[in-house]
Amino acid sequence: MLQIIFSLLVSIHAPAASTNYSTVLDGLKKIQQENPTTTQWIDLGMSDSGQMISGLKIGNGEVADLIVATHHGNEYGSTAVAMGAAASFAKNPLAGHTVYVIPVLNISGYNSSNRYEKVPSGMLDDNRDYPGPCVQGKSFQSKATKALADFIDKKNIVASATLHTYWPAVLYPWGFSTNDVSTQYDSQFISLSKDATVESGYDVGNSKVLLYAADGAFEDYAFWQHGIWSLLFEMGDSHTPSQPDMDKMVATNVPGLRRFFENAPKTRAENHAFTGKCDYNRAQQRVHLE
């Protein structure tokens, strides 16, 4: 199975300088054509680049889950893992689940190997563009982030994995500008994160404590707004992984993604409001590694 996935990834991914969204769409079409009974094409909406944000619906279970990659356009390794997950889940759908896979959210950034997305207001970090309890600026400046937010609400997503490079860890909320980082579900988040890292051996921890504060990130928004069991996968140790590096990232993260969805609660968390205080003296660092 993994060799099939690796062959597919070789065909759709060269090093970062030649990333092109059209090759990702070709890869999705190939997966759909090879698995017509388990997959369905989906469109989220038009991006600011004028291209449709597309993905696959895999399976037909009652519990809806999400894998979304490349909020940051230069993190093409995350797209490779999303595509590997799509190929794997299409061959062997998760019983009782429907898994939606969006391999590229930031299309213009992906096409130019740029972290940021080009939007009417300028260059935007998509993973700082969501509302949140400590967000001070304007949100949803990107059509892509708004489309994804509408999608997870409409589809009643229960668990989500947002894929990034690089900082080998699986992280959970809260990750924004606060010292009150705990939720009522820390023990469950830790257990789910450990489930997701059996093969990778990545670190597990709170997003702010283990990484750094980031206001307006998707993973916090999904839990805060909806109670979605949201994990941030920081994969590998480079934004420019080689093909062997990407093969390893697929092999060590796809099983963890499957196990995360299998073991996550089948309904959203009930108590997902943030009840702490924002700490703007320790506001998000101007670090952009994730």
Results as ranks from 00 to 15, higher is better:
Asp215Met: 04
Gly205Ile: 14
Gly236Arg: 09
Ile190Met: 06
Asp237Trp: 02
Arg268Met: 10
Ile190Asn: 11
Trp224Lys: 04
Gly216Cys: 04
Gly227Ala: 08
Ala213Phe: 03
Glu270His: 08
Met246His: 03
Thr197Val: 01
Ser207His: 12
Thr197Asp: 00
Ala269Tyr: 07
Gln243Leu: 13
Phe261Gly: 11
His239Gly: 00
Ser191Met: 09
Asp220Phe: 10
Ala251Thr: 06
Leu192Glu: 13
Asp203Lys: 12
Trp229Lys: 09
Ser230Phe: 06
Asp220Cys: 13
Asp237Gly: 02
Phe260Arg: 09
Ser207Phe: 15
Gln188Asp: 15
Thr240Tyr: 12
Glu199Asn: 13
Glu262Val: 09
Pro244His: 15
Asp247Thr: 09
Ile228Phe: 02
Arg259Cys: 00
Ala269Phe: 08
Leu232Ala: 03
Arg259Ile: 02
Ala222Pro: 02
Ala251Leu: 06
Val254Ser: 03
Leu231Asp: 01
Lys208Asn: 04
Met246Trp: 00
Thr252Lys: 10
Gly201Pro: 11
Val254Trp: 01
His226Gln: 12
Thr267Asp: 02
Leu210Ser: 09
Thr267Met: 05
Leu211Glu: 13
Ser242Val: 05
Asn253Cys: 07
Thr252Tyr: 12
Asn253Trp: 06
Ala264Thr: 06
Tyr202Trp: 10
Thr252Leu: 13
Val204Leu: 12
Val250Thr: 10
Ser207Gln: 15
Val204Ala: 13
Gly205Val: 14
Leu211Ile: 08
Arg258Gly: 06
Gly201His: 11
Val254Met: 00
Gly236Phe: 10
Asp195Met: 07
Ala264Gln: 04
Asp237Val: 03
Val198Phe: 05
Phe223Ile: 08
Pro265Met: 02
His239Asn: 07
Lys194Cys: 00
Val198Ser: 02
Asp220Leu: 12
Tyr221Gln: 11
Val209Ile: 15
Pro244Asp: 15
Ala251Lys: 13
Arg258Gln: 11
Leu232Asp: 08
Glu219Trp: 07
Asn263Ala: 06
Gln243Asp: 03
Leu211His: 04
Phe223Arg: 04
Asn253Pro: 00
Trp229Asn: 11
Glu199Pro: 05
Glu262Gln: 14
Ser207Asn: 15
Trp224Ser: 08
Ala269Ser: 06
Glu262His: 03
Arg259Gln: 14
Val204Cys: 14
Tyr212Gln: 07
Ser200Leu: 14
Ser200Gln: 14
Ala217Asn: 15
Gly227Cys: 10
Ser193Gly: 14
Leu231Pro: 00
Phe261Pro: 03
Pro255Gln: 03
Gly227Met: 10
Phe223Ser: 03
Val250Gln: 04
Gln243Glu: 08
Lys208Gln: 05
Ser187Trp: 12
Asp245Asn: 07
Pro241Trp: 04
Ala196His: 14
His239Asp: 04
Gln225His: 09
Ser187Lys: 15
Glu234Gly: 01
Thr267Arg: 02
Arg268Ala: 04
Ser193Ala: 15
Tyr212Met: 02
Ile228Trp: 01
Ala213Leu: 09
Glu262Thr: 12
Met235Asn: 01
Pro244Leu: 15
